[in-house]
Design a protein around this nucleic acid. Sequence first.
DNA 1: CTTGCATTTTACCGAACGGTCAACTAGCAT
DNA 2: ATGCTAGTTGACCGTTCGGTAAAATGCAAG
Lengths: 200, 200
Amino acid sequence: MNIATDTRSRIIAAAKPRFHSRSYANVGIQEICESAGVQKGSFYHFFPSKRDLVMAVIDEFADEWAHGFVAEAFDPALPPMERIDYLVDAAYFWQKSIKQVHGRMLGCIFGNLTLEVSTQDDILRAKLLAIFSRAKSRFKDTLEEAVAAGTIAPLDADLTAEAMLAYLEGVILLAKSQNDPEVIYRLGPAIKTLRVEAAV
Amino acid sequence: MNIATDTRSRIIAAAKPRFHSRSYANVGIQEICESAGVQKGSFYHFFPSKRDLVMAVIDEFADEWAHGFVAEAFDPALPPMERIDYLVDAAYFWQKSIKQVHGRMLGCIFGNLTLEVSTQDDILRAKLLAIFSRAKSRFKDTLEEAVAAGTIAPLDADLTAEAMLAYLEGVILLAKSQNDPEVIYRLGPAIKTLRVEAAV
DNA sequence: CTTGCATTTTACCGAACGGTCAACTAGCAT
DNA sequence: ATGCTAGTTGACCGTTCGGTAAAATGCAAG
């Protein structure tokens, strides 16, 4: 473990919970540096700008999810539609545990950042779009598998996948507005009722 | 029309598009004052704080919607489920026209603000929650009417209404991430497939 | 022992932040 | 005409913002 990479990762580690629990604009570089025990000049040695930091934070969150809950949920051994249940459950438990520790529901950092910055920074918007795009693909593959297995009636897998992703983000948004992860528990399972019929 | 109220409403008029198109933290009072042709001291004569301004802006947006598209959509003369279609269409056309003028999809200001500030300001969160709560009631009443009319099978109107609201917000979020209102056009109609079954 | 490079420190930049204050103006009622 | 009040003005508060530049440090290869 290089000292250099250590400083860099300490910066990211300090930034992650702050961007997640507040907002992009509300978290300053000075605060991050103080929390990481790093001088500002050192920060700019590793990150050309604040935007580059938040991109690294986005990547870390994405990796964390991809290797954690997402990998568990989209386990090929599970029946396809149960994978979707699993993912919604994971979102619920995650938000619930965050609230227990932090006292607040923080929601999905990708959704949070999307609504905050996507009118102001197309590079960040593209980064977040790519995250959503990958998530949608997971849903789509799962739906196609479910159709092939006869678990569900044929449908437009691409649009239904996008609809499910939208619904999940919307549920997390409403839950955050109530500061109550139980909203995810109550509304989450209805994700499987969403359908976009295949075009003829 | 009093001169006093004119200054106040000029401030709000200047603030509205800025909070909508950027974010709460990214819009400064100085900029709003310059755009409204008002001195900062005058601003603080009408608004005790920035938060009070954004609350007035929220109220204006809410009124605008309530007396515009929402009133049209939830017209008792329309068959219940068509009202929901109407509302989704209204969201689509609104975002589309904003993009034509502004070059960007701005999304729903209530959703935008919710994700940005609700972990940092419980008063604003409560304000936004009340907006969502009213919207949910509209959906709920409509669903109950549709069930009574036999248009749709019985369901849990309260939870389904909340699910539909969540879906609408989620669709707008995804559309914003793509800067493309057509996402609303494609995904919107699936809102009627959402169902939460009534508890036995 | 020296050169070179990555890293770190420290001081600094101009601009903007939300908010305050006292002085001033205008209109209206007594 | 006078006094009260709502509204307005413009200067000012301390703090923080994202970002820069130059000098100092540590370390490793030649």
